[in-house]
Amino acid sequence: MAVTGLVMLLYLVAHMLGNLKVFFGPDDINGYAAWLRTIGQPFLGHEWFLWIARSGLLAAVVLHGVSAYQLSRRDLAARPSKYAHKRRRASYATRTMRWGGVILALFIVWHILDLTTLTVNPAAEEGHPYQNIVASFGRWYVDVFYVVAMLAVGLHIRHGFWSAAQTLGANNARRDRALKLTANTLALALTAGFLSVPVAVMTGIVK
């Protein structure tokens, strides 16, 4: 879980930074999207890098999900009888890992259909992500879903990053606070970065 999580986290950082190009206008982000398809050329063919990255990410998502499923099954089996006295345990971020993960999985499917395959996108202009983004965020329910998903991403990373460090044995008593701070910063930066786009569309800054 830790390794696949970190792979996806790295991707999210790049993705978020790329998204910010939307503030520099249609040409900037559309050009960036076109450039992504040319990475590695001429050593790699057109879109090869993108497909390599996509297959890597797909593997990460699948493995992450499968591990999460196996871990959850094992964890539920380890506590067959529940406590009668219910009590809030751990932080919100920690408690929402499982459901947050499910929300994110659903979101990814929608997100790909919306902005990659353009299946459910109202504009559906191939090669024009700027126009597609503006069109997509014109729908209130998409905005709501997106905001919820991005908050889930933040919470997921907040616990997930520190947790990955713990699992990989990178944590110790001296580093503990620094790691938690890094996790919070990453979570906040990614959530804010991702949310800035729909907010900008909704407020008319990007149109």
């Binding site: 871990l71 094992r74 539920l76 089996a77 751990a90 920690t94 616990h159 713990q166």
Partner: peptide
């Protein structure tokens, strides 16, 4: 022994 896995909840 059938203990659960660690999800680093810190409990």
């Amino acid at each position: 022994e059938g203990f659960g896995g660690c999800t680093n909840t810190g409990e």
